[in-house]
Write a protein that binds this DNA or RNA. Structure first.
Lengths: 218, 218, 218, 218
DNA sequence: AATGAATGAGACTTCATTCAT
DNA sequence: GATGAATGAAGTCTCATTCAT
């Protein structure tokens, strides 16, 4: 075993195919915590357990790291979300509910949340990030959800509302909830309470959307 | 009197008093467009019409600029929002509606939107920003809105929901709508259509909140 | 006088319009001695008496320095050489002789020689240098000399030779003489002896070019 | 015998003996095209068909490569040139003519020209190169040519000129011709035309050197 | 013998901040 | 007060060389 007796650490580690992933993991952690501009390549390297120079064996530039980061995270997310959105053939409210819960629980994981946070934060500097995220995630997931809403209307579950706008009513609260907690440290007394939020939100929303007549809004 | 008798200074002092504000205006524009780290002090100075060195006559450091920026913007916003929230004595739905519209229209103005955007983006680097924004804006405005909702419940307009969570259902869609447009360039076909969004959203929300029984949500 | 009492050196020197020239002087010395790639910007800065960063106030990059260096040196050289070449109306041999001597003596000055040396050495890396030197110097000076030779032929002083090729016979020896001395430290016993070289060379050349019949070469 | 009985090694040892030469070939090509400083060891390795690490099995450093390169090239050149210089017993003009043509044609080959080009270019950085080249090539070849000239004088073919200086008149034009073409892309209209150059040059030179009196130069 | 992943010193360049004028 | 030349720390990226395999 080629291990340094003093430190117990091998000096080199060779042919590690998962080095790039380790670099990305380290970069995500640091970018999330400090932002892209404030993270030094050396920090990423140290956290990934290699030297500054070695990072450049795997990525041609610092910007390439953040792009690879988003690219890596983006595809599986879209896949899973759309699987949910398509899975429900009957009452579309069940599909909406499941999709929303899955989305919310996914985002509670700091690892998952980190990517969209980073994309939003660095969008002005690295527009490719926003474009990629839009193309790979939003342009697939949002229409899928809008279609669920539309089916709800077509099948007589919902009033005839604008599905695209209603989509925003559907997902917006999740975003605010997360942002208040994450950025401003504002949560319900007992913690994040994501389940209660969704419960409350959907009960209002589905009621508000139901066809059984009621006094108009405003 | 064109000369101050005490100091002997000429009346027009080259608007020295406005200088700090001009610096802040310039900084806000640049921070919004490029982010804090990517904005050079020289750029701010040039846009404000003075020299790099002069900026340091008014602010001790670059970070002091962003802090002053948020501090300046933060107070009047809170004032106005709370004025609205308190103004409605009758049907609280009117108050909510008015407050939301005012909030939305305020944020359509790039100048207004810039501050929270900046706060969110730089929160990780300069936690003071988030703290200040929370203290001066959120901790005043959010409870005021929550109180409106609570009054709606107490006065029999709304079902007994959790006002704090419902608050998120109320304002979330506005945020998503703006973010989709601003970061990802995703808008309804005809443009931002903020009015339609709010119309649609409130109609759903108020219906969903109304007391007249309905099939329970899921 | 704003001079540091300890060192006698002012810490800053402001508004020095000749700073760029001082940087170029320093750069020429170092590029000549060590080559472009081996010269660090910091060395140039120190030799020019300013800081690394200040160099970038005057030149946007290291390569811009070498380009400016050649550009600065190139114009006056061409002017003077062509003035000589045009000045002789009578026996063109006098013009050739004077031009050659002027060229040779000019190049004895290390400052003058440095530029073409640098151009030749770095031509492969920075092709712009060679292009600029050709355009500004060679394309003007060489035809002027060739024209002198041609006039020598037309006026009956020289045999009908190819002026362009003979041009090479004319200036070549100066180049070899310099290169042997400069690169390989090979000189006549008494030193550079440029005058003796030219005397010897021109006596052979003019004899070889004269029309008075002689046994053909080879 | 396909296996060495002593060592038990297979007969074909993957041409390990040729490896150093292949490295030198690759290095020469790259140094010529890009200069020493701009050539990466990895490039040399790849072009030589082996790995970066293997280069260091044969050469202790990058600088050792360029030194070996010159050393390898230097000896045979001197041999051949001196063979020519000594071969002509009769009219030394024939010897000079043949030597010059051989020199010129040798240098047309990019491979041959590469070495002196490299030596000149890198002389300032690696003085050993210039010293070695002088010792092995110039100090042998130049005196041999000078001796031919001297014999021309002694035998009554040439006027009594300084053989060392005339040597420069002899070889200089070849150098300028090559340099104009190689560095500045300046050639006669039909191409390099080396034969015409030499023809023209020698006809002038031999005429100029011949004893039959003529009007003095100048 | 051979590989190529890894290292780390050091290059160029940027920019917040200072200070002589 | 105002300027902008000057500084120098610090960042990104390169590459000769080493070494585990």
């Amino acid at each position: 075993m080629s291990v340094n007796k003093e430190t117990g650490q091998p000096k080199f580690r060779r042919r590690a195919d998962d080095r790039p992933d380790e670099v990305l993991d380290a970069a995500m952690e640091l970018f999330t915590a400090q932002g892209f501009a404030n993270t030094k390549v050396e920090q990423i390297a140290r956290l990934a357990g290699l030297s500054k120079g070695a990072v450049y064996l795997y990525f041609p530039s610092k910007q390439a790291i953040i792009e690879a980061l988003v690219r890596r995270a983006v595809t599986p997310v879209a896949e899973r979300a759309m699987a949910h959105a398509r899975a429900f053939a009957g009452d579309p409210r069940l599909g909406i509910s499941a999709t929303l819960r899955q989305l919310a629980h996914g985002l509670v994981d700091a690892k998952m949340l980190a990517i969209p946070k980073m994309v939003v934060r660095e969008a002005a500097q690295v527009p490719e990030l926003a474009q990629m995220y839009r193309r790979e995630v939003l342009d697939r997931v949002l229409p899928a959800i809008a279609m669920l809403i539309q089916r709800g209307i077509d099948d007589g579950y919902f009033r005839p509302v604008d599905a695209d706008l209603t989509l925003r009513s559907l997902i917006g609260p999740i975003l605010v909830h997360l942002m208040l907690a994450d950025v401003f440290d504002i949560t319900p007394p007992e913690g994040l309470a994501f389940d209660r939020l969704i419960e409350n939100h959907l009960s209002i929303l589905f009621d508000g959307l139901s066809v059984s007549g009621k006094a108009g809004a405003r």
